[in-house]
């Protein structure tokens, strides 16, 4: 088995398990129809609705790999969405609206990166600044209301279809592929990991840690801008109060479900994106199952705890040890295997 596949195998198995579980409560979960030139079905909804968190997870994984965390991405979605909507309402056209939104994301990411890399503020605090105050910026842009616009070209990014598949799905697939190529076909991924494991040592070894750090926060800001554009385009309006609300936490959860350590170091973007799909499968599954809405968060919490416990490396070690102890007690079976802790 290639190493790349082996790395994402636990996440794939988890995703499969969650899909089976959802199929039990909603049997038609896997059915996909083709009508009006587009694919329709719950799985397609998962891929489409999972787009914002999948995009955020790409950026978050890079930040987390440096040992940092970016709490501002949910708020950045609101800001960039507001920027795009305001540009459209002001009559600036599709291209400029997108460019301005992406630029806003890059600037905000650069600001957080500057605070972390140059000023030396801890990442959780540095990004908390924008998380808290950023909604105010978004509200100033939208003047506190939902800024509605009518531009089919922009709405296409959120609810359009290309070759039968929703456009947001293409966007997150492309961004994920591009990010993987950039970090794995160059030394960049290695440099990010080395900064995450030991910033000082990598600086001494000649890695420009400062630039790398600012770059990952800018990448995260860019991903958040794309997520903000998709969300805003989807509802044809910028909702500064609610766009991306708490999604930074879902993005961190996706990164962790992807087996990435919050302490930094080795990372897998594809596993984090699968983590995002796991979260969305749970969300969509809860909606389809038709439980009363009071149960939504409880079901989600139980599933997430269960998945994280099952994926825990130390539990895997304990289980292995327990297994070997049991087999030692059993007669006629030699149990030479010493208990092993498999830490990733």
């Amino acid at each position: 088995m290639p190493a790349a596949v082996k790395r994402i195998l636990p996440q794939l198995i988890t995703l499969l398990g969650v899909m089976v579980l959802v199929s039990l409560v909603f049997p038609d979960f896997l059915s996909i129809d083709y009508s009006d030139g587009r694919l329709v079905g719950p799985v397609i909804d998962v891929l489409k609705r999972g787009a914002p968190v999948a995009l955020l997870a790409v950026g978050m994984t890079l930040v987390v790999a440096t040992g940092g965390i970016d709490l501002s991405v949910g708020t950045l979605m609101a800001i960039t969405g507001a920027v795009a909507a305001a540009a459209i309402v002001a009559g600036h056209g599709l291209v400029l609206a997108i460019v301005l939104a992406l630029a806003a994301g890059l600037c905000a990411g650069g600001f957080s990166g500057f605070l972390v890399a140059v000023v030396g503020i801890q990442p959780i605090v540095a990004t908390l600044i924008l998380m808290i105050s950023g909604r105010g910026i978004a509200q100033l842009i939208t003047e506190g209301r939902i800024l509605t616009f009518n531009m089919p070209g922009f709405a296409f990014l959120g609810s359009g279809t290309l070759l039968g598949v929703p456009v947001p799905v293409w966007i997150w697939l492309a961004v994920t592929a591009l990010a993987i190529v950039i970090v794995r076909r160059t030394a960049l991924g290695l440099l990010i990991e080395s900064v995450g494991i030991n910033r000082r040592a990598s600086a001494l070894a000649g890695v420009n840690a400062r630039v790398i750090l600012i770059a990952v926060y800018m990448a995260s800001g860019l991903c958040a801008a794309l997520a903000g554009i998709i969300t805003t385009a989807d509802i044809r309006g910028a909702d500064a109060n609610n766009a991306g609300l708490w999604l930074e936490l879902d993005a961190i959860l996706a990164t962790v479900l992807g087996g990435n350590s919050l302490r930094g170091g080795r990372f897998s973007i594809s596993a984090a994106v699968i983590g995002a799909l796991i979260i969305q499968t749970i969300n969509t599954g809860i909606l389809l199952a038709g439980f009363p809405s009071e149960y939504n968060l409880v079901i989600k919490a139980v599933l997430v705890i269960l998945i994280l416990v099952v994926q825990s490396p130390s539990l895997a070690g304990d289980l292995k040890r327990l297994g070997s102890q049991l087999s030692r007690r059993a007669p006629r079976r030699s149990a030479k295997a010493a208990p092993q802790r498999s830490d990733r």
């Binding site: 808290i132 105050s133 909604r135 105010g136 910026i137 509200q139 100033l140 109060n241």
Partner: peptide, 8 residues
């Protein structure tokens, strides 16, 4: 916590 920076 929705609105923190606003008109004072």
């Amino acid at each position: 916590m929705k609105k923190l920076l606003a008109i004072s």
